[in-house]
Each structure stands twice: as C-alpha cells, then as structure tokens.
C-alpha cells in the first residue's frame, strides 16, 4: 500500500536529484521500456536495477508495487500464452495444430503458445519495470518536491494558457491519497463479503460483476474525500490560481 506513496528518507544521488529531472527521466525511461525488445529490454531492466541500487531505498521497497500486482501480471502472462502469438490456425487446440504453431504445451483444450508466452513475458517485464521506476520516483521524492517538479515541467505550457498550479497539486494529492483509497476499497470489499458472502469464492463472471459493484461506493467515497480535502485546503489558504502567494503574511 505504502509503495504508492511512501517516501523513504535516505541520502542518495536519486534523493538529491531535482524532482523535475527525475520526472523527465521517468518519462524517458518509460519510453525506452516501451520501445525496447529482447536484449535491449533486458538492458533497460538492468538499468532499472542499477537505479534501484543507487537509490538506497531497498529492494523490498523498489519491488513492492510489482509484488502488489503479481496476480495481474500472472493473468497478463497467461492470457498472452493462451490467446496470443500470431493468427489462430484452423483446428487450433488439436495436437497437430499446436505442433504446427510451435506450441510449448497442449493439455486437452488448453494450448500454451510459445510465442504468446514470450510476448506475455515481454509485457510483464515492461509493466514491472515501469512500476519499479514509479516506485523509485515516489520513494526518493517528497510529495511537495513532486508537486514542484510537475510545476517546473509544465511551466512552458503555462505560457500557452494551461493552468499549471492545479495540475501540479492534483498529481501530488493523487499520489498521497492512493493509500487511503486502497484501504477504503478493502473495507468496502469486507463489507460486501459480510453481507453478500465472499466474492472470491464465486465464478469468474459473478466475481467480475461483484467487483464492478464496488466501483460505485469507491467513487462516491473518493468524491466525498476530495470534497472534504478541497475545503480543508481552502481553509489553509490554498487558492486555485497561479498568482504569487500573499506577501503580507506574518511569516514574511
């Protein structure tokens, strides 16, 4: 949970780097991860590992988001292995067709496709690498620095009329609100389990419908919290404009 927002206090080159540079670096790294294939992708992953070591936040913290979405990654891999890897052949699912398509394994109606599995592994590695990069950014950048970084990066867009301040703050608040919303989601799941039974014990379709039902209370809760937060921020002097702040304050 905290992987999505928890800053790790440490002294490392990544901690000392300006937030805007880290954000720009993240965008470049994500582009590399998406574009790279094969050995190039492995090299990018090695680069991610080097950054994780350099950050001194610990492997556990760096890999926390990957562990949190492990089942999602397993599903991606399985779906690609089962349904990916080139056009389906006539009679797919039969041992002959499986052999013709280069399938690694054929177990009755279930056919695992080798090229699909490779494609799935590529997607999984890409998603995991992006998650690790995101974790490194949030673990080495305090929320206020993150807001300032977004502000610096978007500053050129301010000259063409984009209101930079709300976007910068929205990024910071979103990152810090994730743990709260995740915890609330879990509470809603528990409440649903108490009243409707354990959704995880049902079939895939019914389980999917149950999870869709969770969306309404989660969204309602998110909007309510956002409303309360905006009132609290306003009470503490925040204003949605790019004007310089009051200079007549007691602190000045």
């Amino acid at each position: 949970m905290r992987a999505l927002s928890g800053y790790v206090w440490a002294d490392s080159p990544l901690h000392r780097a300006p937030a805007a540079a880290k954000l720009a670096g993240l965008l470049v790294c994500v582009a590399l991860v998406v574009a790279a294939r094969g050995w190039a992708l492995l090299a990018v992953c090695a680069g991610c590992a080097a950054l994780a070591a350099l950050s001194r936040v610990g492997w556990r913290r760096a890999l926390q988001p990957v562990w949190a979405m492990r089942w999602f990654l397993v599903v991606i891999l399985a779906m690609n292995a089962l349904f990916g890897g080139g056009p389906a052949l006539a009679g797919a699912g039969t041992p002959a067709a499986a052999a013709a398509q280069g399938d690694a394994l054929s177990l009755g109606p279930v056919v695992l496709n080798a090229s699909g599995a490779a494609q799935g592994a590529t997607v999984v590695v890409r998603v995991a690498a992006v998650a690790v990069l995101g974790a490194l950014l949030t673990a080495t950048t305090r929320p206020q620095q993150l807001i300032d970084g977004v502000r610096v990066l978007l500053a050129p867009l301010g000259r063409v009329g984009l209101s930079v301040e709300p976007v910068a703050l929205a990024v910071g608040v979103t990152v810090q609100f994730v743990p709260t919303l995740l915890r609330e989601s879990r509470q809603i799941i528990w409440a649903q389990r108490i009243r409707c039974g354990d959704v995880s014990s049902r079939g895939i379709l019914r389980r999917a419908v149950s999870y869709v039902r969770l969306l309404v209370p989660i969204f309602v809760s998110a909007f309510r919290r956002a409303d309360e937060l905006s009132v609290a921020m306003e009470a503490r002097g925040y204003r949605l404009d790019d004007e310089p702040r009051a200079r007549k304050g007691r602190h000045s």
Binding site: G172, R225, E228
Partner: peptide, 15 residues
C-alpha cells in the same frame, strides 16, 4: 484556522 472531523481527509501531504 479550522480543524475538521476526519483527520485523513485533511492531509495534503503524506509527509
């Protein structure tokens, strides 16, 4: 200054 009911909904930063 105002302190509201729900402490979590007043947190602007996690630090």
């Amino acid at each position: 200054g105002m302190v509201f009911q729900n402490p979590e909904n007043q947190l602007v930063s996690s630090v």
